Structure formats: structure tokens, C-alpha cells
Amino acid sequence: MRRLVMWDIDYTLLRGGGVAARAWKAAFTEVTGLAWRDTPVFGGRTDLDICAEVFTVHGVTDCTPERFFASYVRNVHEIKHEFAEQGALMPGVREVLTRLGDDPAVVQTLVTGNVPEVAAAKVAAFGLEGSFDAEVGGYGTDDSVRATLVRRSLERARVKYGETFRPVVIGDTVNDVTAALKNGAIAIGVATGATAAAELVAAGAHTVLPDLTDADAAIRAVTA
């Protein structure tokens, strides 16, 4: 059985340098006419979930997520060159992606809280777009619950490839780990974000790595 390796983006593959957050705030003011007052916790959440919280906190009742996301994507595309200028790849990412990409028993994709267009802009900024079958990914517009994103990705891969995959989720937050476990996936935690390694272990991750600089250890965790 081949493995479907589902990568989180932010603080797992890369850090975006706050570019998307600036675009988010600008889009919010653009579509609502309101000044931004309160920044939610973004880590490990889906954009649909964050959007609902932001609307509620600011008392917005006349704006749909679809309308907001259209503006958000436009804003991101205007400044997407800044991802590479202000952000960075996380340590070891390129080698691990390359080695897994050379393995015919592995299909790599993205399972991320980002909307698809922003996910694509982030990975493209660092030349990673060829590493993933983004068509079978799970994204922040699929559902507000992160575990559903993993399930959607599995369903898409099954339809496209006509086979059942063993799922592997790689992420830096407890939400990534929980989403993996709810779908019977191997959960690999990478402590390169705000979540400590001990928290990822306590959440039930099968493997926790300090980062991806030990490519051999990362490959073993995925293919074990």
C-alpha cells in the first residue's frame, strides 16, 4: 500500500514572514469597511474556522466567507513575492521532499488550513510546487474542522489514483496530530512552530522530530 504524505505548510514546510496575515487584515477592512481590532490564533486552524471567529469578534453579519476569501486571495497575489523575501524554508525541508518524491511508493500532497490559492502561492514562492499533487490535497475552504481536511484528501487521492493509501500527516501543531489520529493516519510532529515537542508527544504523535534536518529520521518515520 502506497503512502499519501500530507504536509502542513506554515511552520512545517516554511514560514511566510507575516505576509498572509497582512493580506488577511487588508482584505477584511476592504470587504467590511471595519478597522482590524483583534488577531486570533492562526496556528493549526482552518481559514474557514478563523474567518468565523473574526466575523464574530468584529460583529460582522453581512459578509460571507466566499466574498472575504476572494478579496484575501487578490491581496495575497499582489504581494506574493514577499513570501520568499520575508519568509524562509524550514530546515531540511527540501532534501526530505526530494527524497520522498523519488520514492514511487509515496504520493505527497498538502493538507493545510490555507485556502488553495494561498497554499499554492506559498509553496511556489520557494520553488516547491512540483513536490506535491495539490489536486488531492485538503484545504481551509473544505471544512472548518481540520480532521475533515485529512479525510477529503484521502477521498480525492482514492478517486484520482484508484487505490487506497496509507495516510501520513506531517505538521507542527496539536491540531495536525489530532486530525491525523482521527483518520487513522500516522502522525509525525515537527517542533518547528510554537508547539513544543512534549505537547506533540502528549497529543499522541507517533514520531516527533525537532526539525527535518535529519532526513534519514524523517524518511524512516514516513515509511516505517
Rank of each mutant, 00 (worst) to 15 (best):
R2C: 07
L4F: 10
D10Q: 08
D10T: 09
Y11I: 03
L14S: 04
K25T: 12
A27C: 12
E30Q: 15
T32E: 07
G33L: 08
G33A: 07
R45K: 15
D49G: 08
I50W: 01
V54Y: 00
V54R: 05
G59V: 12
G59Q: 13
V60H: 13
D62L: 13
T64W: 09
P65V: 06
F69L: 05
A70W: 02
S71W: 14
S71Q: 11
V73K: 07
N75Y: 13
V76C: 15
I79L: 10
F83V: 06
E85I: 14
M90N: 08
G92M: 11
V93Q: 04
L97C: 09
G101P: 11
A105Y: 04
V115D: 02
V123G: 04
A125S: 12
A125R: 08
L128T: 02
E129V: 07
G130L: 12
G130A: 12
S131A: 15
F132E: 01
A134H: 08
E135V: 12
S144G: 11
S144W: 14
V145T: 08
R146L: 10
R146Y: 04
V150G: 01
R151Q: 13
L154V: 08
R156K: 15
V159G: 06
Y161C: 08
G162Q: 09
T164D: 15
F165C: 04
P167V: 02
P167R: 01
D172R: 00
T173E: 00
N175E: 08
D176L: 03
T178N: 04
T178R: 06
N183Y: 12
A187S: 10
I188R: 00
V190K: 01
T192W: 00
A196F: 08
A198I: 00
L200R: 00
V201Q: 04
V201S: 01
D211T: 03
T213P: 03
D214Q: 03
D214I: 03
A215V: 10
A217S: 12
V222N: 02
